[in-house]
């Protein structure tokens, strides 16, 4: 081993011995504070981005230029007024024991209450 190498090795040993620093709790606490700060920043950034995205989507839906039909009228397949009249008539026929009339009215009601094809008008 050359003298220079000896000197180099001795220097390494002396430097190693001179640097025996240990990481104390304060260092970890400082590190933790910085990590917490970073996490808070990230959370704030993400929530801001999510809010902006939501607002953007909402605006897009509201102002996309899509025109809803002005009116969509659905013709009621069942005339509820007529049904009510029939129900009253059925009850009165039952009270009168007029079975034929009851059967006739029930049939009429069933006929009226059948599902009708739906029609739409714009």
């Amino acid at each position: 081993m050359s003298k220079q190498q000896q000197f180099s090795e001795l220097l390494g040993q002396r430097l190693t011995a001179a640097h025996q620093e240990t990481a104390d709790d304060l260092l970890w606490q400082q590190l933790q504070q910085r990590l917490d700060k970073k996490r808070r920043k990230l959370t704030l950034w993400l929530s801001s981005a999510a809010s902006l995205a939501f607002i953007g989507m909402l605006s897009g839906l509201l102002y996309s230029g899509y025109i809803e039909p002005e009116t969509v009228a659905v013709a009621d397949p069942v005339d509820s007024y007529q049904l009510e009249k029939l129900d009253v008539a059925i009850q009165q026929s039952i009270i009168r024991n007029d079975h034929e009339q009851v059967e006739r009215l029930i049939a009429q009601r069933q006929q009226l209450n059948k599902p009708q094809p739906r029609t739409y008008t714009l």
Partner: peptide, 13 residues
């Protein structure tokens, strides 16, 4: 952190 902190600190210092 505890496992490597001393080594990192010595190298940095």
């Amino acid at each position: 952190y505890s496992h490597f902190a001393d080594a990192v600190l010595r190298l940095c210092s």
